[in-house]
C-alpha cells in the first residue's frame, strides 16, 4: 500500500472496498460507492467495530497511526439525549448535531424522514471514503 498521507481518492476507495469486502464478506461488485452499509451490505452494529479496527490497520503508517475514537465514525448513545431524539425521530438540534459530527455523511435525503431506525442506513461506502480522506488530510 502507498504512503497513506498521499493517497488519492481512488486509492482510498479501493482500500476501503477491501476493508468492507473482508469485514462484511460481500462480493466486490456489491461494494459500490453509493451502497449503504446496513441497507445494502447488511452490516450489523458489531460490524462497525470490525470496520473501525480494519480501517485503523489499513491506513496506519509507521509515522502516523490512524486512530478512530469511539463515536467518531458514528455517534454513540443517541437515544440518551432528548434534545436530539424525540418520539423516535431527530429534532432540529439532533440534525444539526449529526451534520456537525458526521460531515462525511450526506443527510440530504434523511432530513425529510429523520427516523432514528434509518439513520445507520445513511452511511454509504462514499461516507467511509470521505471519513478516511478527511482524517488523513488533518
Amino acid at each position: 500500500m502507498p504512503d497513506s498521507a498521499v493517497l488519492t481518492h481512488d486509492e482510498i476507495l479501493e482500500d476501503v472496498r477491501e476493508v468492507l469486502i473482508e469485514a462484511l464478506v460481500v462480493d466486490t461488485e456489491e461494494v459500490t460507492p453509493e451502497a449503504s452499509l446496513t441497507a445494502d451490505l447488511q452490516a450489523e452494529s458489531i460490524d462497525f467495530l470490525d470496520i473501525v479496527f480494519r480501517l485503523e490497520k489499513a491506513f496506519s503508517t509507521q509515522d502516523k497511526p490512524f486512530k478512530i475514537e469511539q463515536g467518531e465514525l458514528f455517534p454513540m448513545n443517541l437515544l440518551e439525549n432528548p434534545d436530539w431524539v424525540q418520539d423516535g425521530t431527530f429534532t432540529d438540534a439532533g440534525m444539526e448535531m449529526l451534520k456537525e459530527t458526521m460531515p462525511h455523511v450526506d443527510f440530504s435525503d434523511f432530513e425529510h424522514d429523520r427516523d432514528i431506525d434509518k439513520v445507520a442506513a445513511t452511511i454509504t461506502v462514499t461516507s467511509i471514503v470521505d471519513f478516511v480522506a478527511r482524517k488523513l488530510a488533518k
Binding site: 452494529s45 454513540m76 440518551e80
Partner: peptide
C-alpha cells in the same frame, strides 16, 4: 475474532 465490551455497546 472480534469481542465486544458488552457494557459499552448494549445501552438499554
Amino acid at each position: 475474532l472480534l469481542f465486544s465490551h458488552a457494557d459499552r455497546n448494549m445501552a438499554g
